[in-house]
Structures are given as C-alpha cells and as structure tokens.
C-alpha cells in the first residue's frame, strides 16, 4: 500500500486546484453563453439556446474586432522585439560572461522583481508629453514642442517588451548554456565564416530556447491590459482592456466571459502548436 500513502498528499492540493482553478474556468465558459437580464445581472443560459452564441458573434463585431487583432499584432511585435534584444544579450552573457555569468544574469533578473505597475509607471513619467525625455530633447534643442511618444502603439509595445523581456532571455540563455562551445569551434572549422557558423550551428541548437521564450513572452502579452491602459489610449486598447471593461465599466459579464474564452482558445491552440514543435525537438524545454 506504499502508493496509497503518498496519494493522500495529492488530495488537498488537488481539490483546491479543482475547486478554485478548473471549476472557475468552467464557470467562465458557462457564463459566456449567458446574457444580462433585465436587472442588469449576469445570467446563465444553455449553450444550445437561441442567441447563446450572441456574445461570440459580438466579439467579432467591427467595434470590438480591432482590439482582438491588435492584441495579437502587439503580442507578436513584442515577441519579435524581445527576441531581437534578448538573444544577443543572452548570447553575450553565455559566451563571454566568464566567471561573472550568473552575476550578469542576476542583474538582468533584478528589474523584473520590481512591480510591473511601478515599472510601467516609470515609463509614463519618462515618455509623457512633458516628461523627462521630452524635457531633455527640448533642452538640447532637438525639438521645440517635444515628440508625442505616449499614447502610441510603440509606447504600448515598448511597455510590454520592458515587462516580459526576461521570459525570453532566460530560456535562450539556458539553451546557450547547454550548448557545447566546442561545436562552435567545429563550425568555424567547417564554415569559416562567423555568420555562417552562427546560422548553421548556434541558431539551430538554441531553437528550443527561442521557442520556449517566444511562448512565455507571447502568452502574457496577449492578455495584458496594464501597458495599453497606462502607455496607450483608446486607439491602442487590447483584448485585456475590453475584458476588464466588461467587468468594471460596461457590466456585461457574459460578454467579458466570451472574450476571455476566445482568448483562452486562441492561446491554447498556440500552446499546442508549441508543444508539438517542442516534442519534435529532443527534449521539451517547458
């Protein structure tokens, strides 16, 4: 009965996760078919009832669709920029960090333990129309009126990059660490050219890290609403803004639930794609 003894350990946390994670997700799904009754309260409805899919149809209405599309494009841009920034820095530390390697990585991790709101707020103070950067630019004489930086898509994407960059750096760094530096030498012997060595040797060997990092950046970016709220405006709102509005402003919970489900399904498809791709590689990194 050795197995039975250890199984007892699983019961309390298992029940907790079922009751407070799995069941609530099910509730979100159930409510997404619901409607708002005449008293303004959210009400459930059968998924096969007429009009049960109205919330889903609404989500693709021209009023809301741009937010959905924007979430995906912003998240993709964030992922690409994080890769463009994160890969070189991880490469630099893994290859040339020497004895200070972990110190350098530790320093990179440090800012990410500063509250995300506070970090985004710092960018607001920097990029605002009368913020530090514009003040500086005017003082130096580069511009008279300052440049509009806040309330632009780039400010929102920048905020997301600043928020989630570390999730790209760490897996890429780990995959570079796993790599035997001798193969780079071998690559140089074979290809000679540094760029070719990188493209044919280093890059394929770190594919897993890149894929894991991309998923880890993409997932939270899609659902983020902090960056778009603080650094953007109504023109840059993402699905996260739309969802939180349904719960706090518009008071249309079933529609908010439907938007949440759409996002979950989209991300699950993405996740499955990643897991299958990772399984094709040697060892899954997640």
């Amino acid at each position: 009965m050795a197995g039975g003894f250890w199984t007892r350990f699983l019961v309390p946390p298992g029940l907790w996760l079922l009751a407070l994670f799995a069941l609530p997700i099910g509730l979100t799904l159930a409510l997404s078919f619901g409607y708002v009754d005449e008293f303004g309260r959210a009400a459930y409805d059968s998924p096969v009832a007429p009009g049960a899919l109205d919330n889903y149809a609404d989500a693709f209405d021209p009023i809301y669709l741009p937010s959905l599309v924007r979430s995906v494009t912003y998240a993709l841009a964030t992922t690409a920029i994080c890769l463009a920034i994160g890969y070189p820095i991880a490469y630099y530390i893994a290859r040339f960090g020497g004895r200070r390697k972990y110190l350098l990585i530790g320093l990179l991790v440090l800012p990410f333990f500063v509250n995300y709101l506070v970090r985004t707020y710092a960018w607001v103070a920097l990029l605002a129309d009368e913020g530090l950067v514009n003040n500086f630019l005017i003082d130096v004489g580069l511009t008279d009126q300052g440049i509009q930086m806040i309330n632009t898509p780039w400010a929102v994407i920048g905020g997301l990059v600043y928020g989630y960059l570390i999730f790209m750096i760490l897996p890429v760094f780990a995959s570079l660490e796993r790599m035997d530096p001798a193969v780079i030498e071998a690559g140089k012997d074979l290809y000679g050219n540094k760029l070719q060595t990188f493209l044919h040797v280093t890059l394929p060997q770190t594919k897993q890290g890149i894929m894991a990092g991309s998923v880890l950046v993409f997932l939270p970016s899609v659902g983020d609403f902090v960056s778009a709220t603080l650094l953007g405006g109504p023109d840059t709102f993402m699905v996260g803004n739309l969802i939180s509005d349904q719960f706090f402003a518009a008071n249309n919970w079933p529609f908010g639930a439907a938007l949440t489900v759409i996002m979950m399904v989209f991300l699950t498809v993405w996740m499955i794609g990643y897991l299958r791709a990772a399984a094709r590689e040697t060892k899954p990194a997640l």
Binding site: F21, I25, D224, F225, I243, G256, T260, M263
Partner: peptide
C-alpha cells in the same frame, strides 16, 4: 494569462 485566472476567480 493572469486576466483569465482573475476573471475565473
């Protein structure tokens, strides 16, 4: 995503 967990809760 945290927003999903938040709304479900």
């Amino acid at each position: 995503p945290e927003i999903v967990a938040g709304i479900s809760a």
